[in-house]
Computed example of a mutant assay.
Amino acid sequence: MNLKPDFISKEQLVENVDNDMEQTALVYAILVCATLMASVGLNYNSTTTIIGAMLISPLMSGISGIGFGLGFSRLDMAKRGTFIFLLQFAIILGISFLFFYLTPIKEPTPEITSRTSATIWDILVALLGGTALAISKTRAKDNNVVVGVSIGTSLILPLCVTGYGLSNGDFTTAWNSVKLFLINVFLICLAVFVVVWLLKYGSFEKRNLSRYALFVLPFLLIGGFFVYSTVDTTITEYRAKQFSETELADYFVLEQEISSSPKELQLTLVGETLEDSDVEVLQEKLSAYNLADHQLTIQTYSSREDGSFDASVLADIMNKQNEGTSKFLGLD
């Protein structure tokens, strides 16, 4: 067994990345097909169709061009990758918008709702995917790691969900899904950049410092803000989950929502009705979970004296459960 790394030269690596960014009409035809497949899969909640769309999506070419271009300190390559990425972004967004605008089925499916929020785990997957992508490009042998990265980060799906949100006037869904997409793109590029320098493929000329900083700084600021907000939201949701499991152990948590402006923790419970004094006590306990700055709001669905539920109440409970809740509650 030979464990010696089979690295290629920097010149060959640059040539390979440039070749990957070669765009033809057929590439964009495949991109359109992948977008339509992803949109159909999301609309009809078909996992197999969604996987097929991820397999054929050629979305990684521009993204790898940006990451390797920054790593090589070649702004021409990074700019070319950015142009390809923005063009592909516009095509996917436009096609998915038209599809969801024309389709008679407008209700959000579980596949759609699962692409409307980013977590720490999405960040980790994107970093690992970008690292694998960069390492695979430095190998002398052909491989299909790019396909694995496309599936793992599922880049095309949140962007199609953005098209869904825009077509239905649901700007919250559109914003959350495009943020998930941009976080994945940023972290893949960042991982590629780091690997390029760790493997000593990177180089830098001081005379290009100002141009390089002008290109990179907005990229880092926007991407960094998205990552920070995602980590902060994930930690807050986890703390809220701990609060619910500990302080409301006798209740079934049907729905958990956290709003940032104003800061509020909204819980929908199934169990005995809580008095105002009980809610005040729970509000004071939020400080123990670093949630003292959040206002607690609780809605409770209670049964009759015989333990049964009114039909309308039961219908509300089932509807809320079908809509899906926070990933951390395990009720998706």
Rank of each mutant, 00 (worst) to 15 (best):
I63L: 09
N45M: 01
G69D: 12
F89Q: 02
L70P: 06
I95Q: 00
G67D: 02
S57H: 05
N43H: 01
L36W: 12
L36N: 12
G65I: 05
G67N: 05
F83K: 14
I63C: 03
F85D: 00
T82Q: 04
L55R: 04
T47F: 03
I84M: 04
L75F: 10
I63G: 00
A38N: 07
T49A: 15
R74M: 11
M77P: 09
K79I: 14
L42D: 05
S39H: 07
P58S: 12
K79A: 10
S61Y: 07
R80H: 14
L93K: 10
A53W: 02
S64A: 13
I63R: 02
G62V: 04
I50G: 12
L87K: 08
I92V: 15
L87E: 06
I56A: 04
I50K: 11
I51A: 09
F89Y: 13
S61C: 12
S39K: 13
A38Q: 07
L93R: 08
T47Y: 00
G62D: 04
A90Q: 14
G69F: 08
T35Q: 07
L70D: 06
F68T: 09
M37G: 12
Y44G: 00
M54A: 13
F68D: 13
T82K: 05
S46P: 02
L70I: 13
L93W: 10
M77D: 09
G41F: 02
L55K: 05
M60H: 01
G69V: 10
G41P: 06
I50N: 12
R74H: 12
T82V: 11
T47R: 00
T47W: 00
M37N: 03
G94D: 06
T35M: 10
G71T: 13
I95N: 02
L36I: 15
T48E: 12
I56T: 11
D76I: 06
K79G: 00
G65K: 09
V40K: 13
G81S: 07
I66F: 00
I95G: 03
V40W: 15
L93N: 11
R74E: 14
M77W: 03
M37E: 07
V40Y: 15
L36M: 15
G94W: 09
M37Y: 06
G62Y: 02
T82Y: 08
A78E: 05
F83N: 10
G81Q: 04
G41V: 02
S57W: 08
S73E: 08
L86G: 07
R74S: 15
I92W: 05
L55C: 09
